[in-house]
Simulated scan of single mutants.
Amino acid sequence: MDKLRTLEIFIATCDGGSFAAAARLCSSDPSTVSKAISRLESQLGLTLFQRSTRQLRITTAGQCYARTVRKMLQDLTSCESELKYLNDSPSGTLRISSAVCYGHLYLRPLLKAFCRQYPDIRLELEISDLHVDIIDNDIDIALRTGYVKDSRLIARRLSPMDFLTCVSPDYLKNRGVPDCREDFNQHHWIGFRIKETQQLQPIFLPDDKGEYQPYELERTHITDDGEAMANMCADGLGFAQLPHFLAREGLNSGELVSLYPCFRVPQPDSGVFAIYPKRDYLPERVRVFIEFMTKALAGMGESPNHTWAEQWKPYLSRH
């Protein structure tokens, strides 16, 4: 019998005044109660009850011990109730880690509405492209591009990651429109260096059948910051392949055009994911955040299998 159960029997014996009464309170039997009290006395080296054939009387040591045990059980119950409330209600601190570009361009603009809807949730927001261990760093949920293969984690896809081959209208006006992928060798290209691997992001261009294939091009300029890449592209420094969440603002404003229809990297694990620790009881603050993000993205034309970029009309189809 575990110690907590023994202490509960001890308090029931104090309150009931007999082993029989304690047995009824604990849904047990008098023999089990008597043995539990005897084991407790043996462990403590104290007599907690004076026994006779007619009555059970608590000793002075038993009274002192009962005060401490009663308070401990009350504190434990209070703590369990508070923790259950925090887990079952949208409240408490929500620690979010987000990839840099997605955090600035998609997440941050939504936070005001989220906090208005859930005023009892406090946010701790970490913006970084480094894939930190969210369990070791006590992070509730991470928004990441790409899939993390970790059996301790749940990865829920928020959307695919569609790429667009972007350029500024002024660049096309000054340098012309490439007719085929070989023509890109005569154009400027902005490359993206992945921070964790220090490798350049591959370039995919359509072949004669319109299927996207890797294509090796010299990068005129290179950056490891997605927003800088989009801004350099909008400033007319060359072509860039941007994920949909990075291209959206420039395309909507007209600072960028997409030369071709969007494409997805031929990789089954590609996408934008909400990643959180696997657990039996998901905190309500995490659940409502995922639900909020899903609804907000739906309003932007995005779902686990689609993005708005699929409907975007490419530059070449207009001219």
Rank of each mutant, 00 (worst) to 15 (best):
T13R: 01
L40A: 05
C180S: 13
Q241D: 15
I11M: 03
A298T: 06
V148F: 13
L110D: 10
T93Q: 15
Q63W: 09
G146C: 06
G16A: 06
A99N: 15
A298N: 08
E124V: 07
C115Y: 07
L251P: 01
Y102T: 08
E196T: 12
A228L: 14
F49T: 09
K173I: 01
D120G: 03
D224S: 13
F273H: 05
I275C: 10
Q43I: 00
G210E: 11
I134L: 15
Q311K: 14
E302K: 07
A274F: 06
I139K: 12
A22S: 03
S128H: 11
R193W: 10
Y171N: 01
C64E: 12
A21M: 02
E284K: 15
A23M: 09
T32I: 07
K84Q: 07
E41R: 05
D162L: 04
A20Y: 13
R157W: 04
S98N: 08
D207R: 07
K112I: 00
C233M: 03
S18P: 11
S151W: 12
R24W: 01
S81D: 10
I203S: 05
C64V: 08
T93C: 12
Y276T: 05
I275N: 08
R144M: 11
P277R: 13
N185P: 04
L123N: 03
L237V: 00
L83V: 04
L200D: 09
S42T: 14
H131C: 00
K195T: 04
